[in-house]
Design a protein around this nucleic acid. Structure first.
Lengths: 194, 194, 194, 194
DNA sequence: GATGAATGAGACTTCATTCAT
DNA sequence: GATGAATGAAGTCTCATTCAT
């Protein structure tokens, strides 16, 4: 009964969810099919292979972050604190959501050096993130320091996301966010004092 | 004719290396066998299953860290800075070595929520690590603050290990270590001043 | 809205070409569709199945040979040499054309004893061919001998077509044709002498 | 129950038979397994892929002909007629055996231009055959003529094998053999007369 | 008539695991 | 203890075919 049941994006969403929670290798095409109400074979109507699907997932995810999260860093209606706060909160939302964790990091760990195709979008995502933070930090730090702290912040969040997963405790993410905010505010005061 | 080619530990060592670099699912029993000069079937003389082998790997790794790394936190011949420095350097050695990365984190990401058996040794490892750092930090912080900073430090290192892998750049790990050391030394001065 | 993009014959022509060059099993309905500017599903408006399509291809091919090639054997405007020459040349044209080879022989090899439906048109084609040659040969040989040499000629041509394909060398076909012509001309002289 | 059921050669023999009668694409690994009393997966213990198996089949077949058939062409205990007779008879045996036909030709037609890997052993086989016949023919013909007639003979036999298959009539092969023998004997007499 | 979505059987292949030798 | 043969479940992918629109 060939009635349209899904579209490409539905599949991507379901796959994203499964990849995030089960990992790439433990997620089968049948799993993804079931999640969409399709048979495994039908997914090949939309994607040429599992890798192709994953590539799309990574691209969509990157795009999502770029347009819905990192974009706040460049919204000049907001002041720096607000930007940083929004970025952090959005990340927490996404990461801590459901079985959570950062798919980009997961996939990087699970397939890096093994499926080189995935490296580009993953790197791209982290580039976007670091760029966004650097843009914010430049308002209070030198260019070098801004880049440095941006990287440090990403490390802190990603490390926290991992610990959250291991200990099943969302607090790690919240604390990391607070730490980043606190540091930034302190920089502000120091800037004022100097 | 019982010819002994390897022992349990040999297999664990090879498996550890493969799991670390290729991940759990992409490492086959045949891969491990080859690395040991055995056929895959022979591994079952030592371990009842792949999961069983992984469990052993995780336990051995935890033990290794406990005895060879975290132990310095409790070596009262050393002062606090020295302890912290040693811990960091040892971690960098192991993580940044070869194809590197932190197996515990990798496996956590790849199998958490899926192979619950692995959660205990992984959690245990991070507990040990946090405990060791907390022990050091207590010398300059309150109990609560020590625990808090210990967790933060582990997040920082693990996040850096991940970024190191993604960007293929060992600097992340070094910077994270420096940051932790710097923060601790600063705490020392503040303590002196107060 | 009934838009007619192709007709049955278009599909047959494209399918013939693909079956000839790729073989029956390696040619997919999608391949055929693409070659016609259709989607694979649309072919089922014209043919009930792949086998049905192949049957039509074989029939059309047989008809083509009967009307456009073997017909010369019965054209009494021509003398025997001319008939034989024309038949041979036409066959060479078709067989050696493009990726060439004799579809009838290909399909016979690939599907004989497996898709019995195809045997009839294939046999029919070779019957036609042998009949045509026998008709020509009768002018210089006894009925028995004519039949015998007709079969021998077909063997020679088909064997040559196969070697042409294996060695990618059209000469085999030309030499076979020459051989057949030469033998026939010699028969003529002997007949004259006797 | 891992008791040795087959060896590599058993599998090759069964596969050869199936490929010859069913063709390459219609023969599944499961078919081959069943024919050997194995499960399909077990064949991968001996061959890395279906293509790998086919390659072995082609190599074994070529070797078989070289050692058991074409070898007579170089056996100087025999006179020319005997050599040619033996070669022909052996070929008839093999080709007409069972569901018969020449696997080399079958595969050439079914996979040529598609699985280039198979071209080498197939070409090699026909080279061996032509070489053997050329060697015999040189005793009564010039080098050029010997090569020419050798090729012609192979064409005749292969064409006959195909017709045998289509008409399910072994006579084609016998007649082709007789024709070749007759021609050769006639050459002998002409040589004597001149 | 044409399309595109969906199906489902079945293909090749992988791999953890078992077990007789 | 080690091997090599075999297993069987499961995975990715293909493809002829169906059918609502």
């Amino acid at each position: 009964m060939p009635v349209r049941k899904v579209n490409k994006f539905d599949i991507i969403k379901q796959a994203l969810n499964l990849f995030r929670t089960q990992g790439y290798h433990r997620t089968t095409m049948a799993n993804i099919g079931t999640a969409c109400g399709l048979l495994k074979g039908s997914i090949y109507h939309y994607f040429t292979s599992k890798e192709d699907l994953m590539r799309s997932v990574l691209e969509v995810l990157r795009e999502h972050y770029r347009e819905k999260v990192f974009v706040y860093a460049y919204d000049e209606q907001l002041n720096s604190e607000e930007k940083l706060k929004l970025l952090g909160e959005k990340c927490i939302d996404v990461f801590a959501n459901g079985e959570g964790a950062c798919l980009m990091a997961n996939i990087a760990m699970e397939t890096n050096n093994v499926v080189p195709e995935f490296r580009k979008p993953i790197k791209g995502f982290f580039d976007d993130w670091v760029d966004a933070l650097t843009h914010i930090y430049r308002e209070r730090y030198s260019d070098d320091a801004a880049l440095f702290f941006a990287r440090e912040s990403v490390c802190a969040i990603e490390g926290a996301a991992m610990m959250m997963r291991i200990y099943n405790d969302k607090n790690y993410l919240l604390k990391a966010h607070e730490m980043i905010m606190g540091k930034f505010e302190k920089a502000s005061k120091e800037a004022l004092m100097s």
